[in-house]
Design a protein around this nucleic acid. Sequence first.
DNA 1: ATGAAAGCGCTAACAA
DNA 2: TTGTTAGCGCTTTCAT
Lengths: 349, 349
Amino acid sequence: MTELKPRPTIKDIARLSETSPSTVSAVLTGNWKARRISDALASRIQTVAGEQGYSANRQARGLRRGRSDMIGLIVPMHDHRFFAAAAQSFEAEARGRGWCPIVVSTLRDPAEELRTAERLISHGVDSLVIAGASNPAALGALCRGADVSHVYLDLPGPDAPSVASDNHAGAMLLTDTLLDHAVAGHKGARSRAHFLGGNLDDWASARRIEGFCHAMARRDLPVAPDQVNTCGYAPSRARESVAALCERLGGLPSALFINSVTVFEGAMTYFATLASTEFAGTVIGIYDYDPIASFLPFPVYMVRQNAEALMARAFALIDEGVSGPVLIEIVPDLVPPRTIYAKPFLDLG
Amino acid sequence: MTELKPRPTIKDIARLSETSPSTVSAVLTGNWKARRISDALASRIQTVAGEQGYSANRQARGLRRGRSDMIGLIVPMHDHRFFAAAAQSFEAEARGRGWCPIVVSTLRDPAEELRTAERLISHGVDSLVIAGASNPAALGALCRGADVSHVYLDLPGPDAPSVASDNHAGAMLLTDTLLDHAVAGHKGARSRAHFLGGNLDDWASARRIEGFCHAMARRDLPVAPDQVNTCGYAPSRARESVAALCERLGGLPSALFINSVTVFEGAMTYFATLASTEFAGTVIGIYDYDPIASFLPFPVYMVRQNAEALMARAFALIDEGVSGPVLIEIVPDLVPPRTIYAKPFLDLG
DNA sequence: ATGAAAGCGCTAACAA
DNA sequence: TTGTTAGCGCTTTCAT
């Protein structure tokens, strides 16, 4: 049961096809026309290689050539809709170019992020796409030191091209939609729109809040401090915050901008305790996407980051060899409710 | 701006600290006590290495040592709750062992799956975890030929250890739950439970259908052929199927077992056209998980595969050096509805 | 307690 | 048209 025959090397193939390693190498890597090797020899080599199940040792090749044709993607976590979608597009783009895609997550740990980048570089990746970088400055230094081209995704970096979601425009889009669809029936405190979730020191949240305020300002709607509650992303904190808010207002606000699906999940645990009639005059917006949320018995608008477009731009930048710190922003898509909430599920309220 | 200074090698460090490459190597890889190198020299070398920002070239190291400390995870796709969760646990387990985790997807293409495995092997991965293998036989041959230890996850393989979700038990669990909670008000065709989604030639679906039938049989409930509809996983097909079913039955069945969240998504597009009163006597079960689905205005039970537990077992097998074809099955978790549907949202029906 | 030298598998000059 | 040779950066005997 011990098939201890080690993988064949280029030398084995050379011996078996009675030629030399360099010829084998030339034939098997395709630059064979250039060496004007006879068709006979070439096909003989290819046959032998096929029979032996030869496959090049890419560590050796990489060491020798100084490039590996590997490209890495660093994400904060796999278990997240946007990053998972980004990884998917990443693979497609990389494969289309004949590169070997490699995805690694940092478990949201800045130290791990650095270690991961360092490790991928030492394994020879030619380029790196860094999504949601928490320490872009250090990462940039690392990559530059190793002459590894890199692009930032979603969270920009200072030293290299970045392609990010246009959080400002996306937030305006969502806010405008909420305001357009908000029922004008509420009076006083409940008539105002509220923003919930995220952290002020997080670049994306900050820009989204700006967008929210900008859209409000365009309609001459003031935004009081209590209308923006950056309670983080944890469902439990979100639940507390939304409960407190509703208690303060005496009910749901006319429009609620929720900064992520985890925040929404937390809010839902509170909403589930309310009578359905409570939702009559409320429109919810989520800056995030979940396929089922659009089917809830009240209007839920979502904004979905276009991971595919972001990644396509990132690869375009790599293709063009851009290395300066440009920032490309891409407007996300609006996903309207799929329940015709004025009808079925709400024929009930 | 062109910092063309190439990365320092072990040789540079040796020169700068006035010693030899082999000593530097010994010190920097930690087996330095073994060589009884003087503390003075050791710390001198470490200082220099630190100053120079030295980091070993792991391609070279791997080539020489015949192992890379890289471990690969092959998944069908990133953008999928279970596989994303698996990837997340994979990273944690690998990091805990000092290995470099690498995740790659196959875009659900069997040919790509093989190519990916081949490539990871040629880049020197020491082990491979293969999730949702579509061609385990060929993969196994590849791994064995390269002496790469491997474990199958979720879909078992014939030649190496596998750890999978216990689809039979999970389906029984979900079916029992549905039957326990089904309202006995329906008569005739609508009183029967139905299974929707998946493909018969897919191992997981087949086992789930077995589990469904088994649970039914235990209650002396026959399962007619029309109660099982393997319409695939696409939302559009699911919508058609569920619409046809309801038309045939004259309404929703008392219990509906839905084989994945994409099938549920398709079904929802149809459900959204129904009046809420239609759901009065219906219980839905999804063999999959979405955090928002539990908040719908009718009872939705879900089954959630325990990716973390699966991955932990997979690594345990690697640790123990198990290489025979054992199959370990892990029962998934039941997620009950979070809306108290007898109250709020359904105070309406 | 440390250094010299060989070699992992491959590619690319350079010879022939 | 093909073969020989010299490394890529590292680890590991084997000498000292």
